[in-house]
Design a protein around this nucleic acid. Structure first.
Lengths: 340, 340
DNA sequence: TCTTTGGCTGCGATCGATTGCAATCATCCC
DNA sequence: GGGATGATTGCAATCGATCGCAGCCAAAGA
């Protein structure tokens, strides 16, 4: 292993005390030291390739300049853009993101949380939003800075950054009704996600706006392709009448629904229209091109990072909610209902 | 900020010296301490919710138990599964991954590298394979443990974990020739990726195997949808004869090619067959379902992590290459050539 | 009974940086 | 000329855990 230069070596080379080196190299304290001395120190530091040891510094300052990001599943395509947004905001400011996957399992979440805490992250961006969350309540009580992303949690006054779920869903419903659909189904995500609840409430409310629009809601087991497929399977298996249009809780569910429709010999959009939620990458390339609600994930991530850094620097948490606008993207998975 | 329990407090509560606490809690040194004492210490630690301060430990041991992962673009869908594989191997072993995006730009790469070095990562997984790489040579000379993933670099003797590019490409070519295609095109990635070179070489070699198969290679500007689309555009724009089948350098290029075909009124697979590379998530859902070479990205990640931890623990680098098998997945984007 | 042995635990230095406090020195003002 | 002022810089404590070394004690051996 290469031995790295320490502050003491820089101090020796520059002929000053290591305290002076420290002050010269830190923007916050640089004004204490004479310009000529500072120059000398910087030259010495460069010559030795000095990189401050962040662990020694962190030990002293108890700041790690890293923030923990907890996501349920990085393979869900909405998270990479979110990560990007977070990183893009963080890295110019000297912060780094530590990523942890939880697989949606609470035990792993606990472990990830502890592991990040052990690494003394300065704060968290939590994108796991289970409705109930002892972990978060605990964290809040201990004064750990955090921001919720996308999904919130009840009773935990952390700031929340989210897309306008309600507006997106009602745009979807209005689009379908405008096309002539009168029999709508919402395949919702599991009830323990706050977003699922918000979206299904919005669905019901939006449908109620229109007279004579039949609507119902079924709940999938998870926010995944497989769950969407099996949920739709059971609906179609009954042989009973199926809706002419479906609003899915997210894009993955929508894709699962498309699978199921295809296996049952139904065509989208001819027989059934489907709308997703999120506008995940490549949503335009799937078969059929998915009509969906676009959520600005990158901006979501950046905004969450911004709020978190604010909270860390101010040393206080403000329970505010930032809602970013969403927009309906009409593509090929929705059409007028065929007469039947 | 909540003050966390320190080792001294645990020691007080348990009525022992802090050195004993340290030994009792570390698996490696636990055998030095009496079982009864150890139990007492563990109880005290649990009661206080003691989490060792990794910075203090790292300062002493100069091990951070984190490894840096450098990827060119997390939004390229092959990287999330790779990350998963890495994390799945790392986290049961107490390691954490620090992720850095480089956008493929070498300056950012340098910055990311330094930033991770500053955080005293114990090693690197590099998934950025540019062919030329001063950074890596430098790192190797400094004895920094690392493993290359997916893409290699010339002249840098780090271990490399990769899919069997050549085998995959020749399977693709054979599949197309078997279907009756005699006019093949390979849209390769930029020449500064080692994988691009390996794949285009394999393409030429595989085609040469078959008599009377016309083949040529064009190079795209990047490994992206946009690059694939524009490359194909220029080919089709010439009005000249187009091939009956295309092997793309990766799935993103393939998708771009599909876009271009569609815009030029050509149908895949009726007019032109297309094969991708990677089998990225949702490749089966795009229009048409993409025939592609499946690469086991998760396993790639896990294997890289395994090699890296080995190298860190052994303290030596072995220049070996691990090649994981790939397999052709035939879906809807390839068919027999129409007679014309 | 005295020494040896070995298991267990305590002591204190140490890792590399930051920072409150004190010391130094030149300049300034009356 | 003497004390005040302010700009720099040095000193040494400190963060929290690890680990070499030494000490203690009981059991074993002579």
């Amino acid at each position: 292993m290469s031995k790295r230069a320490t502050i003491a070596e820089v101090a020796d080379l520059a002929g000053v005390h290591k305290a002076t080196v420290s002050r010269a190299l830190n923007p916050g304290t640089a004004h204490y030291v004479n310009a000529a001395t500072a120059k000398k120190v910087q030259r010495a530091a460069k010559q030795l390739g000095y990189i401050p040891n962040i662990m020694a510094r962190g030990l002293r300052t108890s700041l790690s300049m890293t923030i923990g990001v907890i996501v349920p599943d990085l393979e869900n395509p909405i998270f990479p853009p979110i990560m990007r947004g977070i990183e893009n905001y963080l890295s110019p400011r000297g912060y780094t993101a530590l990523l942890a996957n939880t697989d949606g399992r609470e035990s792993l979440e606990r472990a990830a949380f502890d592991s990040l805490l052990q690494r003394r992250v300065d704060g968290f961006v939590m994108a796991t939003g289970l409705t109930e969350h002892p972990l978060l309540a605990d964290a809040y009580a201990r004064g750990i800075p955090a921001v919720m992303l996308n999904r919130g949690a009840v009773g935990v006054p952390y700031p929340l950054v989210t897309g306008a779920d309600g507006a997106g869903i009602s745009a979807a419903v209005n689009h379908l009704v405008g096309l002539g659909h009168r029999d709508l189904l919402h395949v919702a995500g599991p009830g323990n996600f706050t977003t699922s609840l918000a979206r299904s409430d919005a669905f019901t409310a939006a449908c109620a706006t229109h007279r004579s629009v039949k609507h119902r809601v079924v709940t999938a087991q998870a926010l995944s392709v497989a769950a969407g497929e099996s949920t739709m399977d059971t609906i179609l298996a009954n042989g009973q009448a199926y809706p002419t249009a479906i609003v899915a809780g997210n894009d993955l569910l929508a894709i699962g629904i498309l699978h199921s429709l295809r296996e049952h010999g139904l065509d989208c959009p001819r027989d059934v229209s489907v709308i997703g939620f999120n506008d995940m990458p490549f949503a335009e390339d799937i078969q059929p091109p998915l009509t969906t609600v676009h959520v600005p994930h990158r901006e979501l991530g950046a905004e969450a990072a911004r709020l978190l850094l604010n909270a860390i620097q101010e040393g206080k948490q403000e329970p505010l909610t930032v809602t970013l606008p969403v927009s309906l993207i009409v593509r090929g998975s929705t059409a007028k209902p065929k007469s039947r």
